[in-house]
């Protein structure tokens, strides 16, 4: 494609736009993480989210999400080498790993609700569900994008020329993963005193 050489920064418009957008997303999650940190001990006399965390379970689902970043890289690498078969496999793998993570989150949420920590229980629980829910929505949007790419690929239209589209979706996907690394560390691993 000629787009690479045509811009003032030599970055394609879509890629730059995604970087800029991700900059904005940082503050979105920044606001939500701050809210949780402010509220994490305010349990309204009920169970705190931190008291029902299942660290081993969430560690596994975090690992699943991190592995999806690896498959995303493999997908991009395959598409840029015009290896369509492998590109399709890795795109699907990434989407499936993402879906597995979401499944884990749904299970975690229902488990928490059963243990008496619902969305409306306390400021702490509201903040926890808002933050992790927001992240879950981001992962889900990423899965929709990946599946769109997968369908395009099945139709035979995802060629080397479109490698950049895969890269841009990949940028988003890696960002969402990195945010989860923050959330997992700050929310789950650092104990509430």
């Amino acid at each position: 494609m000629m787009t690479e050489q045509q811009t003032s920064t030599n970055l394609s418009n879509t890629k730059l736009a995604m970087w800029v957008f991700l900059g904005s997303e940082c503050l979105l999650f920044g606001g939500l993480i701050s809210t949780y940190l402010l509220y994490k001990t305010r349990g309204n006399g009920r169970t705190l989210p931190a008291e029902v965390f299942d660290i081993p379970f969430t560690s596994v689902s975090s690992f699943v999400l991190l592995m999806s970043s690896l498959t995303m890289v493999l997908a991009l690498s395959a598409v840029s080498q015009d290896n369509r078969e492998a590109g399709r496999v890795w795109l699907l793998a990434t989407a499936l790993l993402g879906a597995l993570f979401i499944g884990g989150q749904v299970y975690e949420f229902t488990a928490f609700v059963r243990e008496g920590v619902g969305f409306t229980t306390s400021p702490a629980s509201s903040a926890f569900f808002a933050l992790t829910g927001f992240h879950g929505v981001h992962v889900s949007l990423g899965i929709i994008m990946l599946m769109s790419l997968f369908i395009i690929s099945v139709k035979g239209n995802l060629t080397q020329r479109n490698a950049e589209t895969v890269e841009v979706v990949g940028l988003y996907w890696h960002f969402v993963d990195i945010v989860w690394v923050f959330i997992f560390t700050v929310i789950y691993l650092i104990p509430v005193e």
Partner: peptide, 26 residues
């Protein structure tokens, strides 16, 4: 994004019973 977070919390407080701005709940 910062005001979006604030408005989002407000919306959930008012419409879905979240506890972000309810002083009674701490």
């Amino acid at each position: 994004p910062v005001i979006t977070v604030a408005l989002f919390l407000l919306m959930f407080d008012r419409l879905f019973g979240a506890q972000f701005f309810n002083p009674d709940a701490g």
